[in-house]
């Protein structure tokens, strides 16, 4: 389990921290269709668009590679803690013997 866990975590950190820089910056399927059909005209500014990690880039970090990588790593850690913590709370506990 330990090695599988470390393996999944390592791949996640590598993808979010490093590989994400090389991801396609073209609009995704929904955004493309929204642009083509005119749906995107109705899009409203996101309420947290000024947040420190908005748009997967770290505010005040000028290097794009670093800015995106840091945001990705931060996201992986936050999701791991929240989802892992939730699963630990929800899980069936072994009866105390």
């Amino acid at each position: 389990m330990k090695w599988v866990a470390l393996g999944i975590l390592a791949v996640a950190l590598l993808l979010a921290g490093v590989v994400s820089y090389y991801a396609s910056s073209e609009p995704d399927g929904l955004n493309r269709v929204a642009q083509d059909t005119g749906i995107s005209r109705t899009e409203k500014q996101h309420a947290t668009a000024d947040g420190p990690l908005a748009g997967y880039s770290t505010k005040d970090v000028d290097n794009q590679r670093l800015s995106g990588g840091l945001a990705g790593v931060a996201g992986v850690v936050v999701v791991l803690v929240l989802a892992g913590g939730l699963a630990l709370v929800v899980r069936r506990r072994k009866p105390v013997s």
């Binding site: 866990a5 993808l15 590989v19 997967y56 999701v79 699963a87």
Partner: peptide, 27 residues
Amino acid sequence: TAPMAGLVAAFIFATQMINFPVASGTS
């Protein structure tokens, strides 16, 4: 299995950052 849930969520978050091209001008 509880630790797996956290890892799977983290992996999905990371993978969702990786847009791959599917057609011209679309990912």
